[in-house]
Design a protein around this nucleic acid. Structure first.
Lengths: 218, 218
DNA sequence: CTTGCTAATCACCGATCGGTGACAGATTGG
DNA sequence: CCAATCTGTCACCGATCGGTGATTAGCAAG
């Protein structure tokens, strides 16, 4: 055949002279890291076997071997998510005394808002959750909400919501608002006409959020 | 006889004897309808030239010719969105007297919640908005928020928010909460631990929402 | 050194994607 | 009647996707 040998691909091999040694554990970690990085930076849209393998600098076959495919890999990300959450959201009260349930929810709202804003991976996962109904994302979703619920329970202590208020429903609304507003800001710097660019904008959003919390819980 | 003839492809030609006549306007409409249907039913993930052409029962070439590709088609959907919103969200007060800004926002919240729940296309678009930052979705987003803002302005009448409350920020939070909770319910029947399946669940959600509105606006 | 095990790579598959150029059939104007 | 125009169809392109079988390369025990 007319060999076109001159057309060989030189696939950008040079600048990574650090070849990983023959080491399964390290490769597994590299794959997992690449998956998280890719999901955080590019979103779930172009998240696939080929992309992860490229990002990890290894063959996709290894993803099948070590994780059983994308599903297993996503599951592994979910497993990671628990500690991930624990690492990124403070467990303490920030030196405040949370005397009432309103104090608590105000504090939780602010912590969650800041944590989500600072965590692209978590944002992408939330966006994924509301966009697709596959088994993959269902697992991720479960891991996330479990970690979150655990965190809230830990922070709650012995505080109880006021009588006559469906705290579960109200809190779901509050967390929903935070999630949506952070997601919207990440793609368009605004939400429902409210600018969400600089820290001044966010200060307004935070005040509004506190106002809502206090309006319900006093 | 060993009829190899049986192996011929019969490409499922029969059950659609209704061939569209040679008619550009009708074809354009069929494409637009197919696009909206596809987006509403399948989501933005598998929304593409090929899928739309399949759905419209015509060649994709026509989409390029009549709409200039997917971008133009999405833009056409955006243009449609104005009347779409106007058709689906009531403009009247439902026989209520909206005496205060709180009355208004409570009513708007309920209307928006119901409308979004009943409108899969709008849901998909919102999910798209928070998942991708392309020019396509930016156009859609603008059309949607414009239609929404117009609706709110129309409903507002002469009512003004109470002093000392950043109504824009608070309302953004409320609408964000509604959008996220509806999106979440559409894929997983729950949000942040709150079940959102039957009408009883939704009644609880609605009450919580009203509570929040009343907590802020009285 | 040879044998085996395993990490890792390579080559290929069919399917689908977005996109384009060429062509067929109907309609219309001269 | 012919030619131009418009609607619609078809075949094909390169790229990428998820997935798999065969193969190479490094390491340790015998």
């Amino acid at each position: 055949m007319a060999v076109t040998n001159a057309a060989v691909k030189i696939p950008f091999e040079a600048p990574a002279p650090e070849k990983r040694a023959r080491n399964r554990a390290a490769t597994e970690q590299a794959i997992l890291d690449a998956a998280k990085r890719l999901l955080a930076e590019e979103g779930f849209q172009n998240f696939g076997i080929n992309a992860v393998a490229r990002g990890a600098g290894c063959d996709k076959q290894l993803i099948y071997r070590y994780y059983g495919g994308l599903n297993g890999l996503v599951e592994a990300i979910g497993t990671d998510l628990g500690s991930w959450v624990a690492d990124r959201i403070p467990d303490d009260t920030g030196g405040m005394f949370l005397l009432t349930y309103g104090d608590l929810m105000e504090r939780l709202s602010m912590l969650f808002l800041d944590a989500l804003r600072a965590d692209p991976l978590m944002r992408r996962i939330v966006a994924w959750e509301v966009s697709e109904s596959s088994e993959q994302v269902r697992r991720l979703s479960e891991a996330r909400s479990k970690a979150l619920a655990g965190w809230i329970e830990r922070m709650r202590g012995s505080l109880v919501p006021p009588k006559g208020v469906d705290a579960q429903a109200v809190n779901a609304m509050i967390f929903a608002a935070i999630q949506h507003i952070v997601l919207a800001s990440a793609v368009s710097d605004q939400c429902a006409g409210l600018a969400l660019k600089n820290s001044k904008d966010w200060e307004k959003a935070a005040i509004a959020l506190k106002r809502i919390v206090r309006g319900v819980y006093g």
